[in-house]
Amino acid sequence: MSSTQVHTNFYNGLAGIGWFICHLNEAEIADVDVEDFLDTSIDTLLYEDMIQLLNTNVYDFFYGATGICFYFLKGFITTQNPAIKETYRTYITHFLFYIEYRSITDTHGKHWKHSGYPFEKDHVNYQLSSVDNISGLMLVLTEIAKTNSFNTLCLPLA
């Protein structure tokens, strides 16, 4: 990657490409050596970026932390390597902890605010679309819950 800025997001970056490679193997469409193509240094870079995005309330599926976690989930499901599987489990666990920690609970339930646009008066606001926030987050949390591997962590988010 020659560019000075490495995109890590799902839309046009490493998370989306990583998901794509894992999906090709899972669907038995093509046999790609995932561990050779996406080594642990890339996963570490993605993890650090995911935490940084969570710190700044960027939960987007396309451009934020949720899309990166979606790649980790795909890796967790598809990898045959126990050590790498445990690493993905740790990354997903941290995502779930952080999502719970950053959530806002009121009489309407649990929700998350999104970094505001420059023209908004409030510095954070609610985004309901799949691209920006809530819907995309619900999708990934549902997919994580379906694995039955994170039940105790998913329960507080239900």
């Binding site: 995109h7 799902f10 839309y11 046009n12 970056g13 989306g16 490409i17 998901w19 794509f20 999906h23 090709l24 469409i29 093509a30 396309f62």
Partner: peptide, 20 residues
């Protein structure tokens, strides 16, 4: 662009499914 939703990775996935 090489991304899944804006570039070559997405195009590659499209052609893989098309061939299948």
């Amino acid at each position: 662009n090489v991304g899944l939703l804006n570039g070559l990775a997405g195009e590659s996935l499209y052609y893989f499914y098309r061939s299948e």
